[in-house]
């Protein structure tokens, strides 16, 4: 399947969502504008490249729903943690930057895990190492670095691996 086909299927949907009108006419308009925008830059986006979408993309939708459920839960938890720190009378934190080894190798998996780390309690991704095997994570409470590494590996990375690999 060529990347061009995937782009032309995705852009009308994005047009519908942004314009707010989900109708056949709106889809058609989105297709026309998508072609007008993308076609001059077809070399830039490597549209003629053949990509092989992994066959179990649809089979993994339940896993993706579970990942979003975990993500929303972690976002609410993170907000309560930050709210407690911000509203305490004296701010007493011990921040630090920790190296966290990750197992996933694909680009989309690394993006997913980095974004998830940023949205979860007390941690913020700063950078990735050259060989894409270690994330540098700023933590607002770095008194127990091994505990943070374990919680990222067991609680978050598992769901990302299941949903995107």
């Amino acid at each position: 399947m060529k990347r061009r086909l995937i782009t032309y299927m995705a852009l009308p949907v994005v047009w519908c969502l942004v314009s707010g009108y989900v109708t056949i006419g709106s889809l058609f308009l989105g297709l026309i504008f998508g072609m007008l925008v993308v076609e001059p830059f077809s070399k830039l986006y490597r549209l003629d490249e053949v990509v092989h979408p992994t066959g179990d993309w649809i089979a993994k939708i339940p896993k993706k729903v579970k990942y979003f459920y975990v993500l929303i839960k972690e976002i609410i938890k993170a907000n309560i943690v930050v709210a407690k720190i911000v509203l305490s009378p004296k701010i007493d934190i011990k921040p630090g930057i920790i190296a966290v080894p990750i197992r996933t190798k694909t680009n989309i998996g690394i993006t997913g895990i980095a974004n998830t780390i940023t949205l979860t309690p007390g941690t913020l991704t700063v950078d990735i190492s050259d060989d894409k095997s270690v994330l540098y994570v700023h933590s607002i409470d770095a008194t127990n670095p091994q505990g943070i590494r374990d919680s990222i590996r067991d609680d978050l990375e598992r769901y990302v691996l299941e949903a995107f690999e």
């Binding site: 976002i75 609410i76 993170a78 907000n79 930050v82 709210a83 720190i85 911000v86 701010i91 934190i93 921040p95 930057i97 940023t118 949205l119 309690p121 007390g122 913020l124 700063v126 700023h138 607002i140």
Partner: peptide, 18 residues
């Protein structure tokens, strides 16, 4: 209230999202 740029980002990225 938070002391440096990294800690302030904790407040803005997470809390801003919710």
């Amino acid at each position: 209230r938070l002391p440096d740029v990294y800690n302030r980002l904790h407040a803005t990225t997470k809390v801003g999202t919710l």
